[in-house]
Design a protein around this nucleic acid. Structure first.
Lengths: 114, 114
DNA sequence: CGGTATACCTTTAGCTACGAGGTATAGCTT
DNA sequence: AAGCTATACCTCGTAGCTAAAGGTATACCG
């Protein structure tokens, strides 16, 4: 099945979006392209993933959307709220925890206790 | 919902199980305890997670199970197969990729391209 | 005028982690 | 003897989230 990124992806789209929007306002299509770039092509997320997450973040109050017309096309810009910043740092901390726990376990020096 | 570890958990139970079983044969209940230990308490996985994954890995040929009676209790020991070893290294590589991509993006030095 | 790029969006499917619950034995404590 | 805790296995249902596919519309280039 879906074999673009596989496993290890849960929660990651949200974290990436919050990371990018912490820096500056961006719109959906732009976020899709940026994610590919800032992860060094390691992670590619389609629009079908990005838009639903953006909408959910808006509903939960982490983001605020504003429509802006540029060259006849309508862009929906997202801006991070205070709640969003809080959520971002919480998720980032959780990511650190999981990551270091897993890396500790994967370390060949770590031996499995009896 | 389920707030023991939250997000970032997809694929991780499988990777941890394979990591532990790469070292030596173990049984389910033991694996549950070991995971807590080797991750420095960062990750705790319940039996409801472990058993289904073990069964799936067995079905797919990554593990081979053997029942062994110890002190009147029956333990099901799992041993990694060649296919399992292969799957382990593939997953580990994928984890590296996702991890470094995400960390690159999270690095404050990384600036979002315009 | 047709194709490609931009820009938005929804629906459906499917995986999988997780909690709750269920069985059974062994051993310790009261 | 009764009851609790620990060991050891297991299943089912829910719910969250990713992902692919498909759908609309405008702008620009040849």
């Amino acid at each position: 099945m879906g074999q673009t990124n596989p496993p290890f992806m849960s929660g990651i789209p949200e974290l990436l979006l919050l990371r990018l929007l912490a820096q500056r306002d961006m719109y959906g299509y732009e976020l899709v392209r940026s994610i590919r770039l800032v992860t060094g092509e390691a992670i590619t997320l389609g629009e079908g993933v990005i838009y639903p997450v953006l909408h959910a973040l808006e509903r939960s109050g982490a983001l605020k959307a504003t429509r802006k017309a540029v060259d006849g096309r309508t862009r929906v810009y997202y801006r991070m709220t205070a709640a969003g910043r809080k959520r971002f740092s919480r998720l980032q901390g959780e990511w650190q925890r999981i990551q270091s726990g897993l890396n500790m376990a994967l370390d060949p020096e770590t031996d499995v206790p009896t």
